[in-house]
Design a protein around this nucleic acid. Structure first.
Lengths: 321, 321
DNA sequence: CTCCATTCTGTAACCGATTACACACTCAGT
DNA sequence: ACTGAGTGTGTAATCGGTTACAGAATGGAG
């Protein structure tokens, strides 16, 4: 490994001069700068971030807390984060916390051991109080003095509700989604506000979790507990898919007998048959903008808006009439 | 932040003693050990990994290079990596390189700036020659002196080929997958060896990429170029799904008119209708075992097998007769 | 009682960067 | 020629750990 000392020696100057030349801080003579540049080039030097981090107590690393990477929504978000980080010279450290508060706490501690410079959390929706670095919440906004980037889920709910009403729904089953997730709550209230306004009859099916393993069981439960309905508003595309499968299995056709709308717009929603009408969440953008906001916070640039809400979009395909 | 110096002061011993006590290295008296433990407890001290890393030139961080997180195979793999890392006290740094050699090189450089202790690469299948840390290749094995964990794709191909033959296939379209990916090559040769042995008629459709954006176009191309076939062996589940959709759209029914087998066993393969028969890759396990192997390598434990191959499994559902 | 091995502890060097501070030099203004 | 502001540079301290080394204490063998 080439150190700054070797560069200094090669260039015939002191380490301080090399450091100043590389960081454009303080005064550096023209001659010296040139010699340093040549030395760096000749030796193939690049600074060790660990040493730098030790002194500066910050590290150009972002911690990303995710509730569940195997849920296809999050990889997209992670990709947005990663792209933005990479473009700004930051690294991303991954933490899959699985809705487990202990694991989350452990990660926050890990992060501080590594002098991480900021945290992006899509996990609990709680602020990590252990950490004293900038934080931005992704997708799960929260009351109070927090920075966050999320989808406007109330609007998303309204979009879904309106789409279904426009398609002539008369008896709707609304899957609620986990109450503790703010996005799910907003979505539900968006849906219900439209349904109430339009005076369409509906029933709510409580679903505890977004956990993909539960999707099939939940779909079966839906058909077992309700029997007269013509429309399902699912809480995400995975659950929508499970409901579709169960419906076809039980001899209903889509959208003629039962129409379904999802939420998320995942890859497979476009590829399945019939194509799933759904509300697209800008997952990639949430990740990208969240990372940008965090980096601005870290670098003490002013951030205009503490809580940005991105607009979801209705994607019309073939599962609504 | 609490430093080792403060702990030493509180405990009334020197920093060397504190360090020795915490790392169980060298001699430490009973008395001192107890005082140190008390001080650590009282102050809530935990060591700064950056300082440690600077001296030790290693960092309990693993770099994970992925070709494309938005391909649903990789999050599962990443989850395996993350679980294993976490269990062994390592952190995972994410690098999404998108089959871009420059980006890959850049990440390897980043990694070395952070004194990363090992690299897991599911990306190019090339060894990162810039790095002088242990490396294990995931999913894309390679000839020569490399450590790797991958699926036995030849066997996977045979499984798919045999399943299709057993289901009475007579005219098969085999989607080849990108030739430069070793797994795709192995899979293809596994398929073809069975097909040749059983003397079933087939044609090969070249597909350049696993890129999910191309799935629909590829499916259309398949139906446009061939007209007499009763079976499709897709190169992964996403492509299989796209072919199914195109088939249904064109009025074929599955599996009666056209039967399809996929590869990967993704979440949605179970949830769609009809359920997709496919060959399951143990993605989570590849990640987990790869991480374990890397950690063993880093910690200089002996690793029994340099190149482990995990067995794929045929998942029978409803898309074959 | 002496000697030596073993156990315990502290001082200080070190890892590779950044930066405060002191000092030297140049040059314009008087 | 003198002064002081503006430049340029090197020495050394610093970040928070680990560890080589030296010296002190203990205890058992001869």
């Amino acid at each position: 490994m080439i150190t700054i000392k070797q560069v200094a020696e090669y260039a015939g100057v002191s380490v301080a001069t090399v450091s100043r030349a590389l960081n454009d801080s303080g005064y550096v003579g023209k001659e010296s700068r040139k010699k340093v540049e040549e030395a760096v080039e000749a030796l193939g030097y690049f600074p060790n971030e660990v040493a730098r981090s030790l002194f500066q107590k910050t590290s150009r690393m972002l911690g990303l807390l995710l509730p569940d990477i195997s849920n296809p929504y999050f990889p997209l978000l992670a990709k947005g984060v990663e792209d933005c980080a990479q473009k700004n010279g930051y690294m991303v450290i991954l933490g899959n916390v699985e809705e487990d508060a202990d694991k989350e706490e452990m990660y926050v501690k890990f992060f501080s051991q590594y002098n991480i410079s900021g945290i992006l959390s899509a996990a609990s929706g709680k602020k990590a109080y252990g950490a004293q670095v900038p934080q931005v919440l992704l997708d799960r906004a929260l009351e109070g003095e927090n920075y966050s980037v999320s989808t406007d889920d109330t609007l998303g709910g309204e979009l879904a509700g309106q789409a279904v009403v426009d398609a002539g729904a008369r008896e709707i089953i609304v899957m609620a989604g986990p109450r503790k997730v703010s996005g799910a709550r907003d979505r539900l209230s968006g849906i219900l506000s439209v349904l109430n306004k339009e005076q369409v009859s509906y029933k709510v099916l409580e679903t505890e979790t977004f956990n993909v393993e539960k999707a099939e069981a939940t779909a079966q439960k839906l058909f077992d507990t309700f029997d007269t309905f013509d429309t399902v508003i699912a809480n995400n595309d995975v659950f929508a898919l499970a409901v579709m499968k169960e419906a076809i299995k039980r001899g209903f056709s889509i959208p003629e007998d039962i129409q379904i709308i999802g939420y998320d717009n995942m890859l497979f929603s476009r590829l399945m048959y019939p194509g799933l009408t759904t509300v697209a969440q800008p997952a990639y953008e949430v990740g990208y903008k969240g990372a940008k906001m965090l980096i601005d916070l870290i670098e003490k640039k002013t951030v205009a808006d503490k809580r940005v809400k991105l607009e979801p979009e209705l994607i019309r395909r073939d599962s609504l009439r």
